[in-house]
Design a protein around this nucleic acid. Structure first.
Lengths: 342, 342
DNA sequence: CTGAAAGCGCTTACAG
DNA sequence: CTGAAAGCGCTTACAG
């Protein structure tokens, strides 16, 4: 074996045609007799020819790959979104290049530059923007340049960069789940939240506060404990909450991961859910329904959000950024109930 | 704005040097005066220059991307692996191109060809091989060609293609969890399994049978209900099991997803776990510890498996395929206990 | 329908 | 240390 992958010129030679003809035949373009096209394809097949995408992209100015920036693929919120993106990409024959931002604007910027270097045609950025103005500016600049060079950008979640976006109804969701707890009779609620610097957190919290104030409660009535937006963060926040605000009857977690952490801590303290404490989540990750008690939460159609984002990106840009709002639906399950009558 | 991304020649021109010098300066190669290098870098920075990876790869014959084939990213087993791969890739400045095989050898083949077309330097294939010989052959052929052309392939899980591999101790794990149930006193066990055509399933089952026979039980004593290797599959299999084998005292699921499905069905039937029925899983996905009851399972270090796989791929190939076995550890939690004394 | 040639944006010997 | 030139493997006008 030679060890070298066959090139187009090898196929052309073997078929006794020019590379131009071979190229046309293989890409199914017009202007090649059926017989020749057939022969070329046959030969390519038998030689195991696979066109070099780099050469193709350089020569043709085309690209068949999309970049996907997520915070962390092991986080089910993002893996669901990624799955949706991959499904559409698979259908369209596109490759997806995935990278982690780790919720760090510096890293996000670096990853974006890598994607641009790789000449992806589309970039889907999932996960909230940062409230850090400075960091956002550099990201914005890079994305603008990319767009001006013909790239397409779609954000999932609110993003500083004005672009087409798929927006989960975070505020609505925060409102709905808060009202749910209020209607059950809870007044002594505590919120456990991821970093307040994330727009996702800020938006959900806005919904919470809106529902609170509609019920005559103020922000000061509902403490917000901040911690990492993860299961571990949920545990830490719940521990702190139990210590500092022992009178609470409901824990409103701003994502399911934190809620799962809360359930775990409550179980270890032998506090019954929902009898002693109600717990609610946000996102409705797949496992939420299978927890015990099953988790009352706000459903976001994550896979669809991923699909929709790439579909938007594949359409030609509109004059003004398109915004697709994805509904947030309250899902009442076993983890929430009336407060203990203390 | 022109709309076109600046090229190396633009930088060179702007800096008053040749493209050769500019290229050397930007890639930090030797043979450029510090002053010139500095100036070139400055200009590149200010113009927002990002080298075209396609051109670079074509010219230099290098590649900075790795391909990752997994069954489905929304499956936590694979998202954990993917996370490990991405972590190492991030450290090394490599891009990762991810694709789904959907546990379909035809699709896997197509995805491999796409990765090869994209001239990735490394391919990590996660997920078991298929027992389907025919399908494996084409995949094997493609990977061999890739390797001969200088590519590196590492499999996670047993794979027909003889290559460096990270091998979870599936058989050991199957053995350990079965012995655990036997030691608790269970004799009337049922297995719920993903497709028997997957090597992962076959290997885990081998461990189960080995432990069974060591305890004087035969394969015919332990029915195996086959269903999709998912939560839904776990539900379906458990429903069938309850109907066909009502005397069972333990459900041994061959992955956590199926176990979660089983727990869900048992709960809806008001069967208590582990009092009425023990349930065990396999993998130890993050949520397993947070279920209620928490899931007894076999831990596989999935993130590490992903990391290890890419690390292996980044080392030069050895004469003979390297095999790294990753230990499977029994994790005893709340979902298993002695059988009801009926 | 087919081919010769230019060119995509880089890198890397080869000279100087 | 620096530059002119060839070449990576394709595609796409441009001729014929």
């Amino acid at each position: 074996m030679t060890g070298a992958a066959p090139r187009l010129v090898d196929i052309a030679e073997s078929a006794g045609v020019s590379v131009a003809t071979a190229s046309r035949a293989l890409s199914g373009r017009e202007g090649v007799s059926a017989a020749v096209a057939e022969r070329v394809k046959q030969i390519a097949e038998s030689l195991g020819y696979i066109a070099n995408v780099h050469a193709r992209s350089l020569a043709g100015g085309t690209t068949s790959s999309v970049g996907l920036v997520i915070h962390e693929v092991a986080d089910p919120y993002f893996s669901e979104i990624a799955s949706g993106v991959m499904r559409v990409a698979g259908r369209q024959g596109l490759s997806v290049q995935m990278c982690h931002s780790g919720r760090d604007p510096q890293i996000e910027l670096r990853q974006l530059r890598t994607l641009i270097a790789n000449r992806v045609g589309v970039i889907v950025v999932a996960g909230s923007g940062y409230l850090d103005q400075e960091a956002e500016r550099s990201i914005h600049r890079e994305l603008t340049r990319f767009t001006q060079a013909g790239g397409r950008v779609v954000a999932i979640g609110r993003h500083q960069h004005a672009t087409d976006a798929v927006l989960p109804a975070n505020t609505d969701g925060g409102h709905a789940v808060t009202r749910h707890l209020l209607e059950l009779g809870h007044r002594r609620i505590a919120v456990i939240a991821g970093s307040l610097g994330l727009t996702t957190v800020a938006d959900r919290l806005t919904g919470v506060h809106r529902a609170l104030s509609a019920a005559g409660l103020g922000e000061q009535d509902v403490p917000v404990v901040e911690a990492p937006f993860t299961r571990e963060g949920g545990k830490a926040a719940t521990l702190e909450l139990l210590e500092r605000y022992p009178d609470r009857t409901a824990v409103l977690a701003l994502n399911d991961d934190m809620a799962i952490g809360a359930l775990s801590v409550l179980r270890s303290r032998s506090l019954r859910v929902p009898d002693d404490m109600s717990v609610t989540g946000f996102d409705d990750v797949p496992v939420a329904a299978d927890l015990s008690p099953s988790l009352t939460t706000v459903r976001l159609p994550m896979q669809q959000m991923g699909e929709k984002a790439l579909e938007l990106a594949l359409r030609p840009p509109a004059k003004r950024p398109r915004r697709v709002v994805m509904p947030a639906t309250l899902v009442e399950r076993g983890s929430s109930g009336p407060p203990r009558s203390s």
